[in-house]
Design a binder for these strands. Structure first.
Length: 660
DNA sequence: AGCACGCCGACT
DNA sequence: GTCGGCGTGCTC
């Protein structure tokens, strides 16, 4: 009887994206177990490919003669069976290659981490954990949902929460407290939780919240700033006992044993879009993983994404909102550019300005602005003409107040600027950045400490003392206990952008800043009226998501439908569109020539299809890609260089719709 | 990818 | 007659 290892090759080639059978030599049988890395011969004996063993069987599928496994690279099983199943399903959903997904899920080998893991004390297991009750929601509702393996869109607690003790407070965002409490419920049953958050600061907040309710050996961190060694260690640690795996996109692939909960904070954040093939969104990974594992699923957010709203309207997700919770007191102030001293200069309506000044006497006030830096550009002070670089024609900007204007593109200093239109020699900024607003507020709030936080000057936390904190959207520092008052400026500018997700994004920026306020703090939404202002004032953020989804359904735009972007030669794209003709919905967009022509003659088409046809569309496209990749084009002119693949496929890329 | 197999032009 | 061009196809 022969032992056969079925392996997945570490290759991005779509035609190799299936299991291959190899004979396991007797001397490797002990180590050649599912999950280990191996080297196997491919095509010719001398050429080796890296691979993972997926299963070991006594008889394979392959009728021909089997090549032997060359080497077991390490006896440590790094590919958990459920992660293989997840990668396979995620790749299939995206018409992609499983080994591309594995590259996201499994870090490269780290011998030190493996040695430490092999030398661990296997008799030790961590002490049992007591569940921490979930606060802020009706008694026991979230606990019951977790115990039932339920799924829900959860409105987050909209202010900071103290999860510490009486002597030592630990202030964390409301969502972080809820996720930590939910995770403790799951770990108390000796099940694991996987929690994905958009950015590094969120991981830090969540870790603090978790360590307040769980011992450190129950928390495993996966984040983008980790070294390979740390990631490899975390990967192995996640499988030893029930843990909470936290982190960014890759956390969704953490091989946590006995999965009881998958949760995401702020799934609408663009950081969840994976930039590497097959470009899967963490939300989709979470959905596939819960479907496979039966774990509970929570999407926490203040402003609901249209994607989650769609799942709510399908009754795939329950809705859960905080119980008897003070919400931010949002006061929309339609812009009155009244010439009222400093307030008008700082483009703050007088009511908001008075409230902010009053609040700044006893606590910090948050002012959210749109753009980083001093301003968005410079114009001639006399005629208002946009100032351009004399060297390259790029836009001029000013990094600091009174600094010499500089080209944004080539960096040339614009010394002795003369306006080509009117000959004027003075420039003034257009647009308002954090620094400029801070300067203006410094004059408007004499004697008050002014703090600036933006991309170039990040600040995680400011003390709960009187101050005015000017921050660009997304960079707002936290305050223990929350801000006394929040001012949201530049809303009109944020909404002026074009694109499918603008409204969703702006609501997320606003609500996430508003939730940094103390319970029931006043939040001034400046210059905004209409439905968005009403939704903010009522703190009912599912309304805009529903309205938006209605519009998208009418237009056949995502996420009402799924989309596939096909790029390649005219012939390949046309043939792929033809192969899909029975599955699509709405008009096919294109094929049209790609403006930024990767290779001459490249075209792009966008097809839209219902979710129900997803598996069929993905399989058809994958088959087309395989067909096209085995016959490659030779560039005209006898060029030895290989041409771009004749067909590339990307599913669920909303980017082409952002400029519609 | 990378390499073998296979069917048409210029050479000893 | 055959040596070799690179189009086509496969990899357990």
């Amino acid at each position: 009887m022969t032992t056969v290892a079925r392996v997945v090759l570490d290759s991005p080639l779509p035609q190799l994206d299936r299991l291959f059978d190899y004979r396991v030599p007797a001397e490797l049988e002990d180590d050649c177990v599912p999950g280990v890395r191996v080297k196997v011969p491919l095509r010719t004996g001398a050429r080796m490919s890296d691979a993972y063993v997926v299963e070991v069987v006594s008889e394979g599928d392959w009728p021909g003669e089997l090549s032997p496994v060359e080497q077991v690279v390490s006896p440590v099983p790094v590919l958990a069976p459920e992660i293989w199943t997840l990668a396979r399903a995620v790749a299939d959903r995206a018409a992609g290659v499983a080994s591309d997904v594995l590259r996201l899920a499994v870090p490269t080998r780290q011998v030190r981490a493996e040695k430490a893991w092999l030398a661990r004390d296997t008799t030790w297991s961590p002490p049992a954990v007591d569940p921490t009750p979930v606060t802020g929601y009706a008694d026991g509702v979230l606990e019951a949902l977790l115990a039932d393996h339920g799924r829900a869109a959860v409105d987050a607690v909209p202010h900071p929460v103290d999860v510490g003790t009486a002597d030592e407070p630990v202030w964390v965002p409301g969502w972080a407290a809820t996720l930590a409490q939910a995770a403790s419920q799951v770990v108390a049953r000796e099940q694991s939780a996987v929690l994905a958050v958009p950015d590094f600061r969120d991981v830090t907040d969540l870790e603090r919240a978790l360590l307040a309710v769980l011992p450190p050996e129950r928390v495993v961190r996966f984040d983008a700033k980790q070294t390979n060694g740390q990631r490899a260690k975390a990967l192995l640690q996640a499988r030893t006992h029930a843990v909470v795996a936290i982190g960014n996109r890759t956390a969704a692939f953490a091989p946590a044993t006995e999965l009881g909960l998958v949760a995401m904070w702020d799934d609408g954040d663009a950081s969840f879009v994976e930039p590497r093939a097959p470009y899967v969104h963490t939300r989709d990974v979470a959905l596939v993983r819960t479907a496979q594992s039966g774990a509970a699923l929570l999407f926490l957010a203040h402003a609901r994404s249209t994607d989650v709203q769609r799942l709510v309207e399908l009754h795939w997700l329950h809705e859960l909102a905080p119980h008897r919770m003070p919400t931010p007191k949002v006061i929309p102030t339609a812009q009155q550019a009244s010439a009222e001293g400093f307030a008008a200069q700082a483009r703050i309506p007088s009511t908001a300005w008075r409230a902010a000044r009053e609040a700044s006497q006893h606590g910090p006030v948050l002012v959210q602005v749109a753009n980083p830096g001093f301003g968005t550009g410079l114009v001639c002070a006399d005629c208002g003409e946009r100032a351009h670089c004399r060297v390259c024609g790029g836009p001029l900007g000013s990094p600091h107040r009174n600094a010499t204007p500089q080209c944004r593109f080539c960096g040339a200093l614009a010394v002795g600027f003369r306006c080509p239109t009117c000959g004027g020699g003075k420039l003034k900024p257009v647009g308002q950045g954090a620094q400029r607003t801070a300067d203006e507020l410094g004059r408007a709030f004499p004697g008050t400490r002014i703090v600036v936080a933006d991309g170039s000057r990040p600040l995680d936390e400011v003390p709960a003392r009187p101050a005015v904190v000017v921050a660009t959207r997304g960079a707002e520092p936290s305050v223990p206990g929350g801000y006394a008052c929040v001012l949201l400026l530049d809303g009109e500018r944020l909404l002026a952008r074009e694109g499918l997700r603008v409204q969703e994004d702006v609501l997320r920026f606003w609500t996430n800043a508003a939730a940094k306020g103390a319970p029931g703090a006043e939040v001034y939404l400046v210059g905004i009226g209409g439905k968005l202002a009403t939704a903010m004032a009522l703190w009912r953020l599912d309304g805009p998501a529903h309205d938006e989804l209605v519009d998208r359904r009418a237009l056949h735009f995502p996420p009402a439908v799924r989309v596939a972007t096909l790029t390649g030669t005219d012939e390949a794209v046309t043939a792929a569109v033809e192969a899909l003709r029975d599955a699509v919905v709405g008009a096919v967009l294109g094929p049209v020539p790609v403006p930024e022509d990767p290779a001459p003659g490249t075209v792009r088409a966008i097809v839209r299809f219902p979710y129900a046809h997803g598996a069929e569309v993905a399989a058809t496209l994958k088959a087309e890609v395989i067909r096209r990749s085995s016959t490659r084009r030779v560039l005209p002119g006898g060029n030895r260089r290989r041409a771009a693949p004749t067909l590339r496929v990307r599913l669920d890329d909303a980017e082409p719709f952002t400029e519609v």
